[in-house]
Design a protein around this nucleic acid. Structure first.
Lengths: 198, 198
DNA sequence: AGAGTTACCTACAAAAATGTCAATAGAGTC
DNA sequence: GACTCTATTGACATTTTTGTAGGTAACTCT
């Protein structure tokens, strides 16, 4: 048994916040919104709960910051992967990318959380992302904006649904968890192709 | 100011539980999972919080019961509307129904909540419903079970996504809220038709 | 009407969660 | 090494949330 009190780590404010947010995200994804407690977040980050308050002011501050960070992450991932200049691969991959974004790192769960909490305000980032896709890749293919928007709405919704309940849904009917995703991907692909060619 | 203490209402156990669950559901849908507090549920139901405990044992008991009730509701609604004997209307309406089920009465939000909370166990009802659809309407159309399952997985996921974020997503890009739903419906319909005919 | 059952309540108790404050200790600067 | 700055912390205080106990009252049955 060591006598000396645990040597404290002193981080830069940014690093500290980052560290704490990671813990919060982990908790959110593992235990759901209800599991986002001050002390647990602190524990997971290896700091005292007072430290969390010092950096975020309140538990709401943590939630807000977390939401913002996760959204930023999600949008960034989508946009980045949307960029390849090969138009073919683009159409092919847009589904992949979208699904990945919503499935991995809890993108869908984040969105669900935001919806459930009614935090739909701070989604400006998303709007911008959508606008970018419409005026970018889609426009290049000559899809008119109206239809492009519709396609995006559907695709994102689908990705959302798949990301959220895809796996457990598949397991529920006795299939391997990736089944939903694959089926949705195929469905989306043919649908997209058809819609664009018209 | 009335002197007499408010005359208490005495319900049957079932009615009491029902009443409380309704309040809980309202709260869940309005304020999200975090808003599901014992006292608020009680207030909304017009009873003391002790009464809630009397009927459900604990706050977890309330959650469990609520989840169960909402699932039952959701599944029932889907199945019931799946039944019309006109096969044409069936294909036409399956999307409608599905979307309604998930959009109204917070079906999607329920599912999201369950997912976020990790309460995926008590979904046996869902499995049964899916099985029923596969062996019923789908089989009548001669769709092989494998493919039927896939279609259902996709359709449900899509309904889920639309029900959850459809409206706010549409508004986010400056369209009327029903846009997502309509677009998804069209998309699903053509997709389904194509898949079935093959 | 009287008795039994139990849904319901008020008051209290306990626990959990959030937030405050003054003191401590890393890390850089002079 | 002394000094400054502030991230960090333990101890305390407050508020919120959940749970308990015992009595009251509504309803049913006889």
């Amino acid at each position: 048994m060591s006598i000396e009190s645990a040597r404290r780590v002193r981080r830069s404010p940014e690093a500290a916040r980052e560290n704490i947010l990671q813990s919060a995200e982990r908790l959110l994804l593992e235990r759901g919104p209800q599991g986002l407690k001050l002390v647990e977040v602190a524990q997971g980050a290896g700091v005292s709960h007072a430290t969390v308050l010092h950096h975020f002011g309140s538990i709401d501050g943590v939630q807000t910051a977390l939401a913002e960070a996760m959204i930023r992450q999600l949008v960034a991932r989508v946009l980045e992967a949307e960029r390849p200049d090969d138009p073919e691969a683009q159409l092919e991959g847009v589904g992949q990318v979208l699904f990945d974004a919503f499935e991995s790192a809890g993108g869908a769960r984040l969105a669900a959380w935001l919806e459930l909490t009614g935090e739909t305000r701070r989604l400006t980032l998303v709007r911008e992302a959508v606008a970018e896709v419409i005026s970018g890749p889609m426009a290049q293919k000559g899809v008119d904006p109206e239809r492009a928007t519709n396609l995006i709405l559907v695709a994102v919704s689908l990705a959302m649904g798949v990301g959220l309940i895809g796996r457990s849904l598949a397991e529920l009917v006795g299939r391997p968890p990736e089944t939903t995703r694959e089926a949705a991907l195929a469905f989306l692909k043919t649908g997209l192709a058809a819609a664009i060619k018209t």
